[in-house]
Write a protein that binds this DNA or RNA. Structure first.
Lengths: 218, 218
DNA sequence: CCTTATTTTTAGACATATCTAAAAATATTT
DNA sequence: AAATATTTTTAGATATGTCTAAAAATAAGG
């Protein structure tokens, strides 16, 4: 199996690949791992020898098939534990990350299989991010960001992209909570702000905010 | 906080202290940690510098107050996770140990506080061992081994001492399961074997077996 | 009580994962 | 395209936790 450090590198490379499709640079990875570029080079070499990444000097890294598989497994574990913490142990959205970062490295196939079952096979974590299934597949769904909706569209608020405590407090304040039906009443062309209706109340929402709300279309 | 290795040493010293009250020898600890005596000496020095153990060269170690506190916290976490695995994730008694060994090192006060609450403050783990409370206190109870009961006594079967898969299969076979009321009908003087009644059935049980069953007296 | 056996410690080495500082490669500017 | 700036890699060092082999301390036996 892989060391804690190796697993964290794989996970970080996976996330950075979304933004850097051509390959993740050493510096970007150093920033993501909160370490020095030289340390990154060392670790990349190790991962490369284990065929977890494809690496050519000075050209950045990409995950190999087996590297991606491992990264997705870790992400699956992270997100399932987040669901557990919020749904069963009454954690709030902004408290789960640090603990899930630890729990994601526990090694036991049975543990995660049974946890998944216990949680009734959730498809999204508390932030609205999809949870890959046991085969590592992300099951697609009819989900989008509120910002993508047009005047007249509506959907269920199923998650947030920005899970900072600050943002969650803001949502609390405007009384927008998970599971609510949100309808777009009007959308301003000049700043993309919206007037939406939630529980019969009309609320004005900036694009910054609408970009952070995951909506499941009905 | 303490490293994984430090935590494992503290836990092992704690357990060995039950048998070696005068202090745990370097060799005993090496055996318990499955490592070499020289490694143990190195680690003991480190723990001693951190005031987690009391150590005089060639005289073995004892836990200090803070060392004992830390060890008990780890044991509390281990046992709570075992309850979780058995009660919520359908693990069997003989599968939980390895996973709990990993989970016991997760660092989050809130996690363990909420887990305890979620499990409704269990007082014993699936093997019948007591779970210290958040203050590190073992709440005493009216529990004993079946072997200690006399003719006519009865009590609830609340745990096993030997949790080998073999033994658990045997219990399954004779239909003795957790929570059952067991009454001692007769006890042989010459081999200490017993005839007990469970669910109206009379079963013959050897001393070897009765010595492995934790009973809560009613 | 002195010799032998056992236990424990020390000394020096190794692997992992990190760092700093310097060198090498690549990218950018003029 | 040459000079400069940036990025990446290498080289050498450090901390943790382990090991082997040898030395030192303690325990046991005659």
């Amino acid at each position: 199996m892989f060391s804690l450090s190796e697993e964290n590198y794989l996970k970080t490379i996976y996330h950075l690949e979304q933004a850097y499709k051509e390959g993740v640079s050493t510096n970007a990875l150093a920033e993501g791992m909160d370490t020095k570029a030289s340390s990154v080079t060392d670790m990349i070499k190790k991962l490369s020898e284990k065929s977890l990444v494809k690496y050519r000097k000075y050209q950045g890294v990409k995950l190999s098939e087996s590297g991606r598989k491992t990264a997705v497994e870790i992400i699956r574990k992270h997100r399932l534990w987040e669901v557990f913490l919020v749904e069963k142990l009454d954690f709030s959205w902004d408290e789960v990350h640090e603990v899930a970062e630890q729990l994601e490295h526990i090694k036991s196939e049975k543990l995660i299989r049974q946890l998944d079952k216990f949680l009734e096979f959730p498809s999204r974590d508390p932030h609205g991010d999809p949870i890959p299934n046991a085969d590592g597949k992300f099951v697609v769904s009819n989900q989008t960001l509120l910002a993508e909706l047009q005047k007249g569209n509506s959907g269920i608020f199923v998650g947030v992209k920005d899970s900072s405590a600050e943002f969650l407090r803001y949502l609390d304040k405007i009384q927008v909570s998970l599971g609510k039906l949100i309808k777009v009443i009007d959308k301003e062309d000049y700043d993309q702000s919206m007037i939406v209706e939630v529980d019969g109340l009309k609320i004005n929402i900036s694009q910054e905010v609408s970009n952070n709300l995951h909506i499941k279309m009905t």
